[in-house]
Each structure stands twice: as C-alpha cells, then as structure tokens.
C-alpha cells in the first residue's frame, strides 16, 4: 500500500522533466558525483540523437524517392516525341521514342475501381461478421484466417490468377456478356477468348485487398462505444438495427479510410496484374475484353527489354504511380487523423 501511495507523487515529480531538458531530472535525486552527470548527458544525447536521426533519415528517403524519380523522369519526358499524358502506345525503346500513359493510367484506375466495388462491401460484411456476429470464441480464429489471406505473396496470387482464375472465369465472362452486354462495360467483342482482361484483374485485386480493408474496418467497428450499442438494444432494436444506427455511423470515416488504403494497394499491385493481363495499347471501357494495361504491370513486363532511355521512361511512369498513391494514401491518413480515438493505421 505504501508503495502505491507514493507512486502518484513520484509520477507528478517526474513527468515534467521527462519532456523537459535532462538536467532537471537530477534535482529530486541525491546529489551525484559531478563526472557522473556529464556521462549521463553524453549517453542521453547520443541516444536521442540517433533516434531523432533515424526519424529524419526516413524523411530523407521519402524526399529522395521523389527527387530521383523526378530527376530521371524529367529527362525522359522532355525527349518524348508523343504527348506523355495522352499518347496511348508505349514505344520508349524505338527511335524516336513515342510513349504515353493514357492507356496505363486508365487501366490502373479501372482495375482498382473494379477491385474496390467488389472488395469493399464484402470486406465491410466480413468485418461486421467478425466483430459483431461471429461467436466470441470463433472471432479470433476467423480474424486470423483473414490475416492469412494477407500473408500470401502477391506473386502466388498472380500464379493462381493466371493458371486457375482465368480459365475459371471464362463462363462468368460469357454469362455477363450474354445478359449484360447492354450496359456497354460488359460488352465483350470476343467472349470466347481467354479472359485475360481488366475485369479478371479487378477480381484478383479485390481478393488481394480484402484483408487490409477488413482488418482496418474491423478495428474501427470494435471501437464503437458499448453504450451506443446497448442504448440501441435497450430501445428494442434488432441486431441489424443496432449495426445500422450505432455501428455504421460511427465507423463510416474508418471504412472510408480503410477503403482508400485498399485502393492504394490495388493501384500499386504489380505481379498479379503482370501475370494475368494480356496487355495492349487499346483504350477501351469494355472491361471484359483482353487488353489495356496498368502502370506497374507495364514496368514489370517492359523492364527486361528496356534500353537505358526506356528505363527512364518507365521511371517517369513510376513517378505518376507514386504521385497517385501518395495522394490516395495521404487522404486516407488525413481522414484517420481526424478521428484520433482509434488507430487504424497500424494495419
């Protein structure tokens, strides 16, 4: 008892020095030997310097990424004989080089959007299922199962996508084409061709981003104040009504930021797209048709044969990808930061 009693006073005495200059801390202690004081300061200074230095190093790396990509990209874009933003084909190794990101940027966005449309509702469902519906004992193993999905390397998803998913989506593609061709997007010009299309890529990406969206959403749903839920229950709400009136409104911004984190992943995914898609320089909104491309896929497929100038051109496209993901992720983090009560950022 005595110890616990003295603890608060000690805490009060010590807390301010913790954030203040180190020599303040010495006051409550018995006067130590003078040379001891100097030593302590040196260790402290070295340690805080090293840790602060690492933090600064991280900032320097981020700045260097932006600087070096820009440096190489500017030279490449200056020598581009097409318009970098509107040219469809990517012939950076030809003389004169003609390349642009019109098809690649569109393909990147389309595949990511397909992935979001499929993954977000399912992920929110799974998150709700784990946080509010699954039996308590099952919740943890189920969450672990979803984590396993996240642990599978992207190249394995790519292999599975190319050799298993693509042939198995042939039927779905034909079915969508025969019943929903009137929607324009589902109109396949050759439905009998193997569906190495943006649609298939979108489905694969959806599977890949599902875990991160699920995990962040689940964490937010678990933070809903118990009182909100109990108040709703006390009013006679059913379980679904509890979720609709207390859980979903509270979790909305969390779900948005989770989705944007998933979007960032989907935009930058390389290998799964490179194995599944059969790329072409055709700009089309018929998502069931093979063709199109994404920025990351183009880098991975084109790097092997790229000339030194071709590499710079690929770096230029990488810079575009970097900026897109930076904006998406930055926005997601700002939304999270607005609500400090939960940290969805550690997923």
């Amino acid at each position: 008892m005595e110890i616990s009693r003295s603890a608060p006073t000690q805490a009060k005495a010590v807390v301010p020095p913790e954030s203040g200059p180190p020599n303040l801390r010495q006051t409550p202690v018995e006067p130590p030997a003078p040379q001891n004081k100097g030593k302590v300061r040196l260790g402290d200074r070295l340690f805080s310097g090293a840790s602060r230095g690492s933090g600064i190093l991280l900032l320097v790396i981020m700045a260097a990424i932006a600087a070096f990509l820009t440096y190489r990209a500017v030279g490449a874009i200056a020598d581009d004989h097409g318009n970098f933003l509107t040219t469809k084909e990517w012939n950076a190794n030809a003389t004169p080089p003609v390349f642009g990101i019109a098809v690649l940027a569109t393909g990147t966005v389309i595949s990511a959007v397909i992935a979001m449309v499929i993954a977000v509702p399912i992920a929110v469902g799974v998150a709700l299922f784990i946080s509010h519906y699954a039996p308590r004992k099952l919740a943890q193993p189920l969450a672990y199962l979803v984590d396993l999905l996240a642990a599978v390397p992207s190249i394995v998803y790519g292999l599975w996508g190319a050799l298993f998913l693509v042939p198995h989506l042939q039927g779905t593609t034909q079915w969508l084409d025969s019943f929903f061709a009137w929607t324009y997007v589902f109109d396949a010009s050759q439905p009998e061709v193997t569906p190495r299309s943006l649609f298939t890529v979108g489905i694969l990406l959806a599977i890949m981003i599902l875990p991160i969206v699920t995990n962040v959403s689940r964490e937010v749903f678990l933070q809903v104040p118990r009182m909100h839920e109990e108040a709703a229950l006390a009013l006679g709400a059913t379980r679904w009504e509890v979720i609709r009136i207390s859980v979903l409104p509270f979790g909305r911004s969390g779900v948005i930021s989770a989705s944007m984190l998933g979007l960032g992943r989907a935009l930058g995914e390389t290998m799964a797209v490179a194995t599944v898609l059969s790329p072409s320089a055709i700009l089309s909104l018929h998502i069931l048709d093979p063709g199109g491309g994404t920025i990351a896929q183009n880098i991975a497929s084109g790097f092997g044969e790229a000339s030194p100038f071709g590499r710079d051109a690929l770096i230029a496209s990488g810079l575009v990808l970097f900026v897109i993901t930076l904006v998406v992720n930055g926005a997601a983090r700002l939304i999270i930061a607005r609500r400090k009560e939960y940290s969805g950022a550690n997923a």
């Binding site: 990509l69 993901t325 992720n329 983090r333």
Partner: peptide
C-alpha cells in the same frame, strides 16, 4: 504512414535510379 503505401515497384524504381 504515407511510406507504408509506397508501391513496391516504386521503391524498386527509386533504388534503380539512385
């Protein structure tokens, strides 16, 4: 936080150019 979202291919391109 933002660095968590850097696509792996962009990290590769950075080391490539540097």
């Amino acid at each position: 936080d933002v660095m968590t979202g850097v696509p792996s291919i962009v990290a590769g391109l950075f080391i490539l150019s540097f």
